[in-house]
Design a protein around this nucleic acid. Sequence first.
DNA 1: CCGCTTCTTTTGAACTTGTCAAAAGAAGCG
DNA 2: CGCTTCTTTTGACAAGTTCAAAAGAAGCGG
Lengths: 151, 151
Amino acid sequence: MSPSHALNAANLLRDAGMRVTKPREAVVVALAEQPHASADEVYSAIASALPGTSIQAVYNVLGDLAGRGVARRIEPAGSAARYELRVDDNHHHIVCTRCGAIADVDCVVGHAPCLTPSQSHGFALAQAEVTFWGLCEACLASSEDLAPAGA
Amino acid sequence: MSPSHALNAANLLRDAGMRVTKPREAVVVALAEQPHASADEVYSAIASALPGTSIQAVYNVLGDLAGRGVARRIEPAGSAARYELRVDDNHHHIVCTRCGAIADVDCVVGHAPCLTPSQSHGFALAQAEVTFWGLCEACLASSEDLAPAGA
DNA sequence: CCGCTTCTTTTGAACTTGTCAAAAGAAGCG
DNA sequence: CGCTTCTTTTGACAAGTTCAAAAGAAGCGG
């Protein structure tokens, strides 16, 4: 039995042409367990398993992963950069304007929906990014406490 | 003759409930002349006309303008925040991944195209933001020098 | 199994963008 | 013209991220 289904972080790294090291495996695992994690959150997540790992290593690994196409970097306005392993499917994000929470949103139209702007101004289009902004359930609830709509 | 068509920055400010001051007028003018300008670019733009103006004043004004709905703040990943006066129409942006140049793109579908995500995960949706990424004409030309496709 | 080369990580510092707070200065109203 | 309120300045400060050099580990060939 090959351990191919046991979160093959090592394979993922090897397939991407990266050497397999503890920090990298840990980062991949952390990202798999907590999508949309920031560098700092990844750092915290692996700190218990790999004490002594520097935040720089995390930045390096995340940057490499993004560069190799293994991870995707998203930078919502107003919060630190976040990373996710979902790179193959085209999906978008909905971000809470208050707490910064992020959820995945599969694209409405399927594949290339908003991917065709009406004018391109001479730009060579590479990709489209859609970000929805709103309040997450928790923040919505607490804001209704402050400003009740029904009363 | 009322000077109503002479770039009524003062009116714009007054209508927004803001006091009319030199720095503010200058910022509005700079923004009108150079859409998608960063705080620093605005600062540079008004530096000649209003020496002694601090970068803080620019930050304040831009923040106020955005807060009053006069300007819109956009923060493309990888570059500083930028501001534009076009707030009424719904339009998107195409950003050069190399040099950061930004161009306006009117929305393909008109008003509420991608405005309806397939799942909202309990979020109270406020707005949608679409960003296209690619290479601008200039960067495209210089990259073709380096990696010619036709040869 | 060993040594070598190359890639990673650490360590430490620096930089950019942006924010906060308090005092000085100007706008607008009566 | 004077007062009140809003703006601006000044200076310090903070988060997030990047850079560079040296120490350390991975993986290959013998």
